[in-house]
Design a binder for these strands. Structure first.
Lengths: 342, 342
DNA sequence: TTGTAGGCGTTATCAG
DNA sequence: CTGATAACGCCTACAA
């Protein structure tokens, strides 16, 4: 299917390409008559500018890249949703890549996007990733860049985050308020900032309430899976039969914990209360319904694109952009799994 | 950040752009000596071809578009995953758009992708969409095109589907085998082909087993939500207290049904057995665990990209491509919600 | 073996 | 008001 070009319109109308281009872009210095003729013919031939050529001229692709660790993930798919919705409103399309929590893949994907000359990149780091060269390279190339969720504090870019420490503290405080005396923590991997911060929040909450911290009560996920939740739940009741509360890094793992307790008929919340993190849809439909920390995922996507857009505009105008950090509010969602009745 | 170009390399080396280009693409007619010099300098300057220029020359963007009704959806996010993984392997990037089940949005998005000159489009139609002009336009423009899941049979393109009729028949047969005598069906909206086919499968299964079809036992979702599941469950027990089995269009709605039954302490499966469709992750962690039809979502994505790639290659070579349909197998997953004990 | 020239389709500058 | 010309960066006949 041949596409119509400016040249064709110009030739059939017997005028120059320049004039056609101007007419279609409503330049003031085109006579009304020729403008109308051009527009009419363009409509008739269904003319649309060749975006490849426009890209080359303007050095813009009106496309951004998004790299996330996992697509099949309630939190991330909500973020994706926020980003693509907002991007589309502003005339940008979004290329999505999944790093699979692999640093190697992530590096390749950054290279792919840089190569593609996307106008900007939004990213949540893989668990393996940190202050690495490939990320610095994005900044060095002056490509507008926003981090969200799993960020590296060392990278001076805009960020969209929540206050993981505070949220975790509130979650643990919630358990304490409900009467828990000995609280275990199933934490995320060593490296990601949010796992670290939630762990710190857990410790701070204990400290604040005069509960001694015991490192034996902390269990560390490798892959943050349902299965790990099942396994750690088992270990916790075996190792520490007197644990009466668990703060879990994320809902998926917490659901594994509940599954084990259901199977073993361990009473939740009365014997052990459980609170998760993220407020997955799933959490409100399982039995018992899971208490959790609500994290505004869609809004994070919207905010991330907003920051990126600001930076892309500055970049285009040759202005200096000062990175900003947006911190969104979280809230405790109180459900059955933490409502002790005694 | 200025990018290095062929021109720069040529100038610093005092040779022509052509030679540089050839050297980098391993043309045979370049002396080993100059080739090495060029490659060395290119490496040093970190040269990568400007993809905008390459796009313009080759008329290829190595990018495909994907339009789906919902991103935050266990089935679709798995398909996305399959598509982007496979695409990346073959050197393609994927732009994702969400139609939100809106025909209007879908039309705009098709236009966006066509405009962007993606090399191909993969799509699952919105519920409102059918044999519409914007889809025909894709074919008219000879853009490689693959439909999956929610397809229009009238559009002559490649397709990746499951046999919804057969799968639904098997699901209902499963309920009958477990002893259900009066089976209700919560179906999807009127328009989408898969809702129609699952409904037909339901009827056929009844017929095959000599159970009279009763249109009053069929409830039609508008938006296919959890809430509709709750509401229809309520209606079903009120309208037909003797219903002993329900076949539900998809797991999300079925989970709503279970939630209502749990709340009202209606025994599942003994009083009413329930079977869903799609095998969401959620289905295996709720109580009771939901029986369902497993649908190979990741594989659908892989297959869809595979067909698209074939077509894109033919298209580039100017060969004729004959659309193909790949039908993937489904299977019944038997869990607690259909395991009557009497 | 190397280089020249033209073109992909659009946009911007500048002269008429 | 209109148009010629160059440029974006790369690719590829074709000529030298």
């Amino acid at each position: 299917m041949k596409e119509t070009t400016l040249k064709e319109i110009a030739e059939t109308l017997g005028i120059s390409i320049t004039t056609v281009s101007k007419a279609l872009k409503n330049y003031p210095d085109v006579s009304e008559k020729t403008r109308k003729a051009v527009v009419a013919l363009a409509d008739e031939l269904n003319y649309t500018p060749n975006s490849f050529a426009v890209n080359l001229r303007t050095k813009e692709s009106k496309t951004i890249g998004l790299i996330i660790p996992e697509v099949v993930h309630h939190f991330f798919s909500n973020v994706i949703n926020g980003i693509i919705a907002e991007a589309e409103k502003k005339g940008y399309l979004v290329i999505i890549l999944q790093s699979n929590e692999s640093l190697e893949l992530e590096k390749k994907q950054v290279a792919l996007l840089v190569n593609k000359r996307v106008d900007g990149i939004i990213m949540s780091l893989s668990n393996e990733s940190n202050n690495d060269f490939h990320i610095k390279e994005i900044l060095r190339k002056e490509i507008p860049f926003v981090q969200f969720d799993k960020i590296s504090k060392l990278i001076p870019s805009s960020k969209v985050i929540i206050n993981d420490q505070k949220a975790a503290m509130e979650a643990v405080q919630h358990l304490i308020d409900k009467g828990c005396k000995k609280i275990a923590h199933i934490r995320g991997p060593e490296n990601p900032q949010n796992a670290i911060d939630r762990f710190i929040g857990y410790k701070k909450a204990l400290e604040k309430n005069g509960i001694p911290y015991d490192s034996k009560l902390v269990y560390t996920c490798k892959n943050v899976t349902f299965e790990e939740g099942v396994e750690f739940a088992k270990q916790i009741v075996e190792d520490h039969p007197d644990v009466d509360g668990i703060f879990v890094i994320t809902d998926l793992v917490a659901v594994g914990v509940l599954a084990y307790f259901n199977e073993k008929e361990i009473q939740v919340p009365n014997q052990i209360a459980v609170i998760g993190f993220s407020n997955w849809f799933m959490s409100q439909v399982i039995t018992p319904k899971l208490s959790t920390v609500d994290q505004p995922s869609y809004e994070m996507g919207v905010a991330a694109f907003g920051l990126l857009l600001e930076e892309m505009i500055c970049h285009k105008d040759g202005k200096v952009f000062v990175p900003r950090t947006i911190e969104l509010e979280t809230s405790i969602i109180e459900r059955e799994s933490s409502l002790k009745t005694k």
